[in-house]
Amino acid sequence: MENNNRRDFLKKGLTALGAASVVPMLDSCSDKHSNTEKIKVLSPEGKVMEVDKSSVAKLGNFGDYAVREGIPGKKFVMVIDLARCQNAKKCVSSCNKNHLIQTPNEWLKVYSMKDTEDSAPYWQPTTCQHCDKPPCVKVCPVDATFKRQDGIVLIDNDRCIGCRFCMAACPYSTRVFNWGESIPEIEIDSLMMGHHHSPETSVPAQKGTVDKCDFCPDMLAKGELPHCVTACPNSVFYFGDMYEDVVTTGTETVRLSEILEKRAGYRLMEDLGTNPSVYYLPPVDRLFEYEEGLENYEEFKEENAE
């Protein structure tokens, strides 16, 4: 126990040091005035720790937390019900709108899947899987992508050097790269309404860095659900906290363990050992015919399609 405490102390010291050394450099890069004010936050073990104020998001429901550390005592989980998906793509458009994403850089994709020759095709919305053993995080040379204690894998676009090793490591093809400047700078200024870039929002996209689905931590911090969850007209997405054993579509709230058991939930590429935080419910007893989704389906699209 004593040992543990000492380790914790060291850990926090290091984190604080890390935070302190990062901030001035980021500031000098982005020409923002520096803010060295310290703020107290609660660690998950219930101890008070001091971190730099600028690394803390000042948002609501779960109290202040350090963006890089995540919300203490939470472990977010998503369940995607394939039996309800009709490729309406409202999730995609809502995600694009709220993260200022331009096609074809979508973070969220709905794939047309067909597991074997004879089995029926189905629609599979695919977000970042937020793996517990994220291969992308493992290979990042500069801590630009990191795993938080609440299970979310985020990208710090101010840190990313654009080596794209994470994209090579991710078996789910969820990472996208900003090959060029997608939105003109003036436009970004007005869209951002005075907000600065933060790993919490991943907005706006930065040229030469990697982006991906972030589970909308800015919404979660306010106690609200991610954009795709609320946008879906068919309640395909369940979201919740694994420790609470509850997931909700916003209208329907169920026990996570129950729904996974009853509906035989599974995760993508379980054999790779990545331990995703996203579960799928198999497309059985479907609400919609696969064909209904075809009108929204484009196998390929124009490079700069709106």
Partner: peptide, 10 residues
């Protein structure tokens, strides 16, 4: 890749 290549420019 493991996942299908869809919804991108050809």
């Amino acid at each position: 890749p493991f996942m299908p290549m869809q919804g991108i420019p050809e």
